[in-house]
Design a protein around this nucleic acid. Sequence first.
DNA 1: GGGATCAATACCCCGTTGGCTATTAATCGA
DNA 2: TCGATTAATAGCCAACGGGGTATTGATCCC
Lengths: 107, 107
Amino acid sequence: MSETHDLLFRTLADPTRRALFERLCREGEKSVGALTARAGVSQPVVSKHLGILREAGLVRDRHEGRHTYYSAQLGALVPLVDWTSEMAGFWQRRFDDLEDLLKRMDQ
Amino acid sequence: MSETHDLLFRTLADPTRRALFERLCREGEKSVGALTARAGVSQPVVSKHLGILREAGLVRDRHEGRHTYYSAQLGALVPLVDWTSEMAGFWQRRFDDLEDLLKRMDQ
DNA sequence: GGGATCAATACCCCGTTGGCTATTAATCGA
DNA sequence: TCGATTAATAGCCAACGGGGTATTGATCCC
């Protein structure tokens, strides 16, 4: 239901885009040109992906002359971590309920 | 790069499919009919999504007579948790490096 | 000022995908 | 046995999305 989760999952679903984000996480701030060099796709495509990552809050951009530098915004992953925790929580609770039931049946 | 991450993110990117998985996490095992009742899409579509979730390892199915019961396989989320941890790790390491640099500069 | 470089935008193409209806397969119950 | 129910499959279509090239805008350097 959450729009945030939707945007995050959709944004990270594309391998090219995710690879760009991973590189920014690993190597820190990079210019579009530097990212394009090893992205395997054209510069306009890289720019487009970076735009989508930015709209999802996963990266931020900084302009310096002709160059635009992008860097990862790790905080944007928090909703994703929360979501997985929530799913795990539901699962755990049901597991506990089952355990309780079995204990009661055991008596 | 990892095919597993790709499959997971892609599978969870669709809101209808993710909603099905969330329901299975929250409410436990459910039949296709029960899931279809509140999915907002037709039964064939639900079956299709469940098939995709199964191929991603996110659910398992159990046949009982005419009914097929699906349940969430939480273990499948592990690679996703690992991935986020890895990204956070990269970020943290670069942060530490920066901190070290600043300390050295401070001396 | 003028050519060169860097990034974003515009536009198009085509493969993928998510939705539908119709049908089939299998099982249950009267 | 035969109709009813449950889920999966087949086939179709429209929309979305990721790729490309061409172009524009902006900035740097000679």
